[in-house]
Amino acid sequence: MRNIIPIIILSSIVFLYSCKNKGQENIWSIPSDEVLDGGPGQDGIPSVDNPEFSSVDQIDFMEEEELISGVLINDKAKGYPHGILNWHEVVNDDFENTNLAMTYCPLTGTAIVWDRSVNGSVTEFGVSGLLYNTNLIAYDRNTESNWSQIQGACVNGELIDQRIETHPVIETTWSTWKKLFPDAQVMNTNTGFSRNYDRYPYGDYIENHDYIIFPLNPEDNSLPSKERVFGVIGEQTKVYPLSDFGLGKIIYDQNRIIIGSQEDNFCIAFENDLGLNNLEFSFSNGPIIASSNDGTIQLDIYGNISGGTFDGQRLTHANAFTGYWLAFGSFFPDVEIYE
């Protein structure tokens, strides 16, 4: 009998500990009944962990109007074609001594660059196969924690509630990319996987505004669901429909400068800490995206100012990315639409 008591106590401790761990695994910072299993399972959509790159003039698989997202670090850019991202959603990469992950959700049309240094160690991200508000949930391979792409935060696992550091991202068409970043490296199709990168894997999803594969909560129909908008994230998140930018436009709003072009299919935002709204800038087509009317002051896509009072100074990129309206409408219920 005496021998049994320690065994019972030990078993109880083990049982309680296992229950405790089980509980932690099931804790989510978002409503878990709105997290959906998309079907392929964790890593069923394989991330690319050893991407290969080519120079712009070596890329021959992209059409002029195809979209590409790029990361901007240290006045350099690196591109990741959506045709590849559609099939992999996460690319673990290194660029300018930065460990980064280009994350892309084909269902929300959002490309966001994450820093892979988390909690003091470098991790890789993979595709969890789960979705929240029809948006990618990635997981980090060090701790198996799950991270919401648009929230930019860990929503389940050991690192719950921790936020991820992001890097500036730009999305545009291949034709514009070539003008903006003629010297940039672009990811090629040597991914290690046999996939048809010419084919969009979700049918008419992009064109059909009524087609939302997984439910949203809330669902905001203020704009057509797949309208591409540029969202600037902050205390008051605001979106700017790309269609409002026409041939090129500069908007001073909420102490930010938003520069974009529907024609060139891109948008970028800077924090306006230097008070540039007193200057008369106009949109410029090329690596220099804005210049003063007399041409003496120029702003490039990395935020560098040349000429004038602020010569040599730099604007920082705002936390912003492009995506379908449906994503902003559901993730940011108080979102404003610029008019």
Binding site: E25, D37, N146, G157
Partner: peptide, 12 residues
């Protein structure tokens, strides 16, 4: 559901 409490997809 799976180990982290998420309902498995319809085909599972």
């Amino acid at each position: 559901t799976n180990a982290i409490g998420i309902q498995l997809s319809p085909d599972m």
